[in-house]
Design a protein around this nucleic acid. Structure first.
Lengths: 190, 190
DNA sequence: CCCCTTTCTTAAGATACCTTAATTTTTTTC
DNA sequence: GAAAAAAATTAAGGTATCTTAAGAAAGGGG
């Protein structure tokens, strides 16, 4: 069946899936194509899907009281992106998710995914492992945000996310790092 | 059997466990008692256990190049505490975990836990759900660290972790918030 | 290829937070 | 209950980062 669907390939890189199971999984997800700048989610909407990025680049961000954007995450090929808080608590989204390039995303509804966890136990394991890693990365970012200077955070970002650095505008990287574009520009001058 | 072991009670508050399964789970964990200031883990040691706090209060922290302590997490009753990065990657711990009060902790070895995930699938689900929540909380903390002032972070901490605020010294709260004790003192003066 | 929009840079003054060091207050120990 | 240790406060001067505002550079659509 030469079953190299990117979503299934990705899942199989983490856990074992029989061909049968792969088929079941794939049928649960729906494809969504996005034009550049199109929103996948906006503040206030329900967030009922888990989302996998097959192709493209997206960002999630929120607006503060002054209407300023703060980027929480970037996502590219083989990553996941979501307002997980809203998804888990079934509350209205606080995040926007927007395509920065034309993108292809696969999404599964919460209810369907809960069924999948029972039908295909490897999927429960898959999500545990994925979230575990995401959690560790998030803790890492915390430690940086709290105890490193903007310059150190920027160098770390360049080292670890070179592929993203080259695809998104610099002012968005500044936002992701929690600094102003002006300050990032000053750091880069050296 | 009046089976109200705190560990099992906690797990059952998240997923269903039969009495049989509860017994299997419990047998996998080992009890560890700690005196005040005793270390559960130190930098450089292997981190091979998942740990549940039955009683007491602990902190995890790392040392920077200047030898200064930076607190990553506090843990009290019914919480989990670990150097998860080291646990997952099987690399030497970068964190210290220390009891701030006399404490009782239950720990399970990685290998035994992997077996448990197969013997008792509800445990896989349990950990997925726990880590999911921890991840969301960590993202939340990130957004605060990056985009809020020290004062805002402190008020948030007081609102959400009153029980911890009352049990740990103020300079440790400052460390957790990523500020100096002097600055926290200044914030409190208002 | 040119115009318009988006992105990046520069610089000056403002603010949040840090460092150091000394003093006071609280907690622990014997 | 006194002495010692740990924790909290105060204040002065310093640094990192922000705000504002303006201009330069780059990019995208017709």
């Amino acid at each position: 069946m030469a079953f190299l669907h990117p979503l299934i390939a990705h899942i199989q890189s983490v856990v074992d899936l029989s061909e049968e199971e792969g088929k079941t999984v794939l049928e649960a997800y729906r494809k969504k194509e996005l034009r550049k700048k199109e929103f996948l989610l906006q503040e206030g909407e329900p967030s009922n899907h888990m989302r996998f990025i097959e192709k493209g680049c997206l960002r999630s961000f929120f607006l503060d009281e002054d209407g300023k954007e703060h980027i929480q995450q970037f996502g590219i090929e083989d990553w996941w992106i979501n307002d997980l808080y809203a998804y888990l608590t079934q509350s209205p989204a606080r995040l926007y998710i927007q395509a920065l390039e034309p993108s292809i995303v696969w999404q599964v509804h919460r209810e369907r995914l809960e069924e999948l966890f029972i039908q295909v136990p490897a999927m429960e394991r898959f999500y545990r492992l994925k979230i575990q890693r995401a959690y560790v990365a998030s803790q890492e970012r915390n430690m940086q945000a709290l105890y490193q200077t903007a310059e150190e955070r920027y160098f770390h970002f360049r080292e670890h996310y070179r592929s993203i650095e080259q695809r998104v505008p610099q002012y968005m990287i500044a936002s992701f790092l929690g600094i102003t574009p002006e300050h990032l520009s000053a750091i880069r001058k050296k």
